[in-house]
Computed example of a mutant assay.
Amino acid sequence: MSYLYVSEQGASIGITANRFQVKYKDGLTRSIPVETLEVIEVFGNVQITTQCLIECLKRGVNVLFYSTNGAYYGRLISTSHVNVQRQRKQADIGKNEEFKLAFSKRIINAKIRNQIVILRRYVRSRKVDIERSVIEMQNMYKKIDGASTIEQVMGYEGTAAKTYFKILGTLIEPEFSFKGRSKRPPLDPFNSMISLGYSIIMNELYGKIEGKGLNPYFGVMHKDREKHPTLASDLMEEWRAVLIDSTVLSMINGHEITKEEFYTMTEQPGVFLEKDALRKYIKKLEGKFRTENKYLSYVDYSVSFRQALDMQIGQFIKAIETENPEEYFPIVIR
Rank of each mutant, 00 (worst) to 15 (best):
residue 228 H to V: 15
residue 251 M to E: 12
residue 226 E to R: 13
residue 277 A to D: 09
residue 247 T to S: 14
residue 250 S to I: 00
residue 289 F to P: 01
residue 240 R to Y: 01
residue 245 D to E: 13
residue 234 D to R: 11
residue 283 K to V: 09
residue 270 G to H: 11
residue 243 L to H: 03
residue 289 F to I: 01
residue 273 L to K: 08
residue 239 W to I: 00
residue 226 E to N: 13
residue 250 S to M: 13
residue 284 K to E: 13
residue 279 R to E: 15
residue 271 V to I: 13
residue 227 K to V: 04
residue 237 E to C: 08
residue 243 L to A: 05
residue 270 G to S: 08
residue 233 S to H: 12
residue 279 R to Q: 14
residue 262 F to R: 04
residue 283 K to M: 11
residue 287 G to W: 06
residue 228 H to S: 14
residue 231 L to N: 08
residue 278 L to R: 14
residue 238 E to H: 06
residue 225 R to K: 15
residue 231 L to I: 09
residue 258 T to R: 13
residue 272 F to R: 09
residue 240 R to S: 04
residue 226 E to V: 10
residue 233 S to K: 00
residue 238 E to G: 06
residue 248 V to P: 03
residue 271 V to N: 04
residue 250 S to D: 14
residue 230 T to E: 08
residue 270 G to I: 04
residue 265 M to T: 13
residue 288 K to R: 14
residue 289 F to E: 01
residue 237 E to S: 07
residue 243 L to C: 09
residue 250 S to E: 14
residue 266 T to E: 15
residue 239 W to N: 03
residue 231 L to D: 09
residue 249 L to T: 00
residue 281 Y to N: 07
residue 270 G to D: 04
residue 274 E to G: 15
residue 277 A to T: 09
residue 268 Q to E: 15
residue 259 K to R: 14
residue 244 I to N: 04
residue 250 S to Q: 14
residue 289 F to W: 13
residue 264 T to P: 00
residue 247 T to G: 00
residue 252 I to P: 05
residue 248 V to T: 07
residue 236 M to T: 02
residue 287 G to I: 05
residue 236 M to F: 12
residue 282 I to D: 09
residue 266 T to A: 14
residue 226 E to P: 02
residue 281 Y to K: 05
residue 227 K to Q: 13
residue 235 L to I: 10
residue 265 M to W: 06
residue 281 Y to M: 01
residue 260 E to V: 02
residue 275 K to L: 12
residue 252 I to K: 04
residue 242 V to E: 03
residue 274 E to Y: 11
residue 272 F to C: 06
residue 278 L to A: 08
residue 258 T to D: 15
residue 240 R to I: 02
residue 287 G to C: 09
residue 241 A to T: 06
residue 246 S to F: 00
residue 279 R to G: 15
residue 258 T to V: 02
residue 229 P to L: 07
residue 240 R to W: 03
residue 275 K to C: 01
residue 271 V to P: 05
residue 249 L to Q: 02
residue 262 F to E: 03
residue 278 L to G: 09
residue 284 K to H: 11
residue 284 K to V: 10
residue 227 K to I: 04
residue 257 I to M: 11
residue 271 V to L: 06
residue 271 V to E: 06
residue 238 E to T: 05
residue 260 E to A: 14
